[in-house]
Design a protein around this nucleic acid. Sequence first.
DNA 1: GCCAACGTTGGC
DNA 2: GCCAACGTTGGC
Length: 154
Amino acid sequence: MRHWLIKSEPEVFSIHDLARVGREPWTGVRNYQARNFMWRDMQPGDLALFYHSNAKPPGIVGLARVAGPPLPDPTQFDPASEYHDPKSSPANPRWWMVEFDHVATFPATLTLNELKTDPLLAEMGVCQRGSRLSITPVEPSQFAHICELGGTRP
DNA sequence: GCCAACGTTGGC
DNA sequence: GCCAACGTTGGC
């Protein structure tokens, strides 16, 4: 099993929204690197850290699980969607997504500042200056450490 | 609101 | 294929 970190702006979609709906299609990713993670590398059952970006404070707020295989992101075919891609077609989809299930909500945010000041976590992608990728792989040891700090068992 | 980082676009 | 311009992300 691999481990991941997924970013979401809580004003758009928060860990509480995920807890409420239970399962959410991760639509709207329009970066090839992040797409490849979902399309090629994620397996059903993989666990992900749920990260709130553009939040006060930013940080990890819970856990999610990859619910199934990659699917074509339907928003790419919808002319009314802000994620519409006229260069894509249902016969040859360009953008893929997975669905995430809610696993846990941390009792408190594990803040970016805490991640950066922890020697075991400071190397994580999300801690690096200028990191903008919305999906990044996480080392199993880092994942386990974060679950412990977050007071949560996956 | 500022701005560094980085991806994308498009002229050549 | 190069690279300047531009747009977006996201912490601060």
